[in-house]
Simulated assay, not measured.
Amino acid sequence: MNFPHLFSPLKVGPYQLRHRLVMAPLTRMRAARPSLAPRPLNAEYYAQRATQGGLIIAEASPVLATGFGNPGVPGIYTEQQVDGWRSVVNAVHAKGGVIFLQLWHVGRVSHSSFQPGGALPVAPSAVPISPDLKTMTADGKVVAYETPRALLTSEIPGIVEAFRQGARNAMAAGFDGVEIHGANGYLIEQFLQSRSNLRTDQYGGGIENRSRLLREITQAAIEVWGANRVGVRLSPYGVANDSGEADPMPLYTHAIQSLNPLGLAYLHFIEPRSSGAGRAEVDHQNVPSAMVLFRPVWKGILISAGGFTGDTADAAIAAGHADAIAFGRIFISNPDLPHRLQRGFPLTPYNRATFYGGEEKGYTDYPAYDEMAPA
């Protein structure tokens, strides 16, 4: 057997996994429109990847209509969306899989064309994303990001409540747990980082205050699910969507230490070398390793994601740097990825042009290895 550490059992929360290879949350923009509910094609996609006894973290799903920054992304705030996700979960469970839902709000990484009534996107402060970075409007125009509207202090409990309701809705859909998206320059990370958070209330200023929204949202999800079925994703040293903290160690050390006593199912890192990988092929050089730096700080199960191969994943687990490794892009093109890695079968390359939007092509038409073998 290849990669004995990667293919050893692991308990995550109450779930006994057969191996430590996780499917990372992957935005694919193939929800039904205009409902933004998952559809049968989405259920087929996830079921294809649910047959090997591991954990799937389903794609990021906004908890509010204001939380979108891309077309065709599934939500988790209407009954129709819950019903759509229920079909996905049932398909995964029928194959013996475990599936968590990632709860999301993009904050300033949006455009008024996606916002109810054409309003400005919301953020901790009215700090725009760099004009060097561009976004796409709902009708496909490439434009600069707008200056977001700073959330009022009185509005922030509503954001927390939306995540709580999203957690309830995920439970109603039958998920096995939820993951809080605190990475990649989206709303929670915008609050965490000093360059995007210029607030002077209890959610701004020092590290304690900037970490407050992460703690409150995580606690809200725990009150719905219990701590051992809630995970958190962070991207220390990441540079996605114009994120970045001048000195990440104090901020993320504090944030992680504040999560330690909660008893979460896991903490999930995006490695800096793959920061921004959804937009382009990247392999950032001379960057630190989040799992190596923060493994001594985090006391629970640690998942790491970003540019791993079977060899490097097995080595990371063997060294104790992580307990499980999440794979993203290569899981798109290899629905039977655990089987292929374990048996040493060749991997099918992915086609980046089909990552976002569309139908079956580049989504459900990648065959399993056994289907490719000659009769």
Rank of each mutant, 00 (worst) to 15 (best):
F269I: 02
G84R: 05
E271N: 08
I301T: 15
G206P: 01
G118S: 03
Q219P: 02
N169G: 00
R86Y: 03
T354H: 09
P74V: 13
T200C: 00
S275L: 08
R20V: 06
D336G: 09
G310H: 07
L17Q: 05
R20W: 06
R49G: 08
I76K: 00
A221E: 04
G358R: 01
I332R: 09
A31P: 01
W85N: 09
K299P: 01
F331I: 07
D323C: 06
W298G: 00
N241Q: 15
N169M: 04
G182F: 04
H19P: 03
V98C: 10
G140M: 11
Y363V: 06
P248A: 13
P367M: 11
I56M: 14
D242R: 07
T27P: 04
T354V: 11
G204I: 03
D314W: 05
L103T: 07
L64I: 02
N209L: 05
L21E: 07
A324K: 02
L347R: 06
N169Q: 01
V122W: 03
R212C: 06
F7P: 00
V142G: 01
G238S: 10
V22H: 10
V287N: 07
S258Q: 15
V127K: 02
A58M: 11
L10V: 10
A119H: 10
E146L: 09
Q193N: 02
V109H: 03
P14H: 03
A32T: 01
